[in-house]
Simulated scan of single mutants.
Amino acid sequence: MKRCLIVSNTSKKIAYSLSKEIEEFLIPYEISVVFSQFNGENRPLNLEHVNFIVTLGGDGTVLYAARECAAANIPIFPINLGEFGFIAGIQPEDWKYELEKFLDGKETITKRSLVNGAVCRNGKELINCNAMNDVVISSKAVARIVSLNVKAGAVNFGEFKADGIIVSSPTGSTAYSAAAGGPIVDPRLDSLVLNPVSPFSLSNRPLVLPPEEVLTIRVLPSRNAEIVVSWDGQLHYDVEVGDLIIIKKSALFVRLAGCETDKFYKALCSKLHWSGGPHA
Rank of each mutant, 00 (worst) to 15 (best):
Y97V: 11
Y97C: 09
Y97R: 14
E98F: 05
E100L: 11
K101R: 15
K101A: 09
K101S: 09
K101H: 12
F102G: 01
F102V: 05
L103A: 04
L103H: 04
G105T: 10
K106Y: 06
K106W: 00
E107V: 02
E107P: 00
E107C: 04
E107I: 02
T108S: 13
T108E: 15
I109F: 09
I109A: 09
I109L: 15
T110G: 00
K111F: 06
K111M: 05
K111T: 07
R112I: 03
R112M: 03
S113I: 12
S113L: 10
L114V: 06
L114W: 02
L114Q: 00
L114H: 01
L114D: 02
L114N: 05
L114F: 11
V115G: 01
V115T: 08
N116F: 05
G117I: 01
A118P: 03
A118H: 02
A118N: 00
A118G: 00
V119Y: 01
C120M: 13
R121D: 04
G123R: 12
G123L: 10
K124I: 14
K124C: 08
E125H: 03
L126Y: 04
I127T: 10
I127V: 15
N128A: 11
C129K: 11
C129P: 00
C129Q: 10
C129L: 14
N130F: 06
N130G: 06
A131I: 03
M132V: 10
M132S: 04
M132R: 01
M132C: 10
M132W: 07
D134H: 02
D134F: 01
D134L: 01
V135R: 00
V135H: 03
V136G: 00
I137C: 01
I137R: 02
I137D: 01
K140T: 12
A141I: 03
A141P: 00
V142S: 14
V142C: 07
A143G: 08
A143Q: 09
A143N: 13
I145N: 09
V146G: 04
S147Q: 12
L148E: 07
L148S: 05
N149H: 13
N149P: 07
V150F: 09
G153Y: 10
A154D: 15
A154M: 15
V155L: 14
V155N: 12
V155W: 07
N156K: 12
F157P: 00
F157M: 14
G158E: 13
G158S: 12
G158D: 10
E159R: 14
E159G: 00
F160I: 09
F160Q: 05
F160T: 04
K161R: 15
K161H: 14
K161T: 11
G164P: 05
G164M: 07
G164L: 09
